[in-house]
Design a protein around this nucleic acid. Sequence first.
DNA 1: CGGAATCCCTCGCGATACTG
DNA 2: CAGTATCGCGAGGGATTCCG
Lengths: 123, 123
Amino acid sequence: MQKKKYNISVEATLEVIGGKWKCVILCHLTHGKKRTSELKRLMPGITQKMLTQQLRELEEDGVIHRIVHNQVPPKVEYELSEYGWSLQDILDSLCAWGEKHISRVYGDKFAVLEENVLNDKLK
Amino acid sequence: MQKKKYNISVEATLEVIGGKWKCVILCHLTHGKKRTSELKRLMPGITQKMLTQQLRELEEDGVIHRIVHNQVPPKVEYELSEYGWSLQDILDSLCAWGEKHISRVYGDKFAVLEENVLNDKLK
DNA sequence: CGGAATCCCTCGCGATACTG
DNA sequence: CAGTATCGCGAGGGATTCCG
């Protein structure tokens, strides 16, 4: 295996969770197992292609498990692996900081964080 | 001010520290004030343009301070703002997780994390 | 329903050169 | 030394279509 050089260890972390949507996906998964369609609904801005791609990479890095139920219609679920759960504190902190940041910038976080469904086609 | 919609609070965090190099820059700054040239040396892969750009955005978001010393030759330093220090726990956790991840993947972190200077033109 | 495969285009980013 | 300006490439990612 070719050893990759890092100048600082955080670079290794970013290779795993640094993708455009990866932290968002992982945060959702800290709330429990999710179906593909659920994830898509929770992230109105993501495309099918990107969702699949990011999920594959997270799976390759061992932080999530892909669970395929052999049935019709198909049903696929994703959940954090044991290794993935080692990121929980980080993910929680990232979310918590985001809330404080929203309050700082906008003054009232409740006016900003809204129902996902409402955003479906608002852009 | 136009209120931006977030579907989950971590998205707000990623707007601030989600840039390609931002976490790396911030991690270095948790070790103290740095000059521009120091940062460049600590991040052999970054270009002057990207460094300036990322620093400007971090400054706009209020997490770092830019300190200009009026002298010749020019001397500019960057340091975490008080607000930026509120990210310290997150940044430390990201670094710590990266170290564990390197060990997990490569078995021996000491073989991977090396002197920055050595990487200058290795790619 | 979940995902693979194509086409296609934007714009992120690097390379280079220049300024104070 | 720190930063700006300009050009241009190509990978990242969007839209669409097809498959099991």
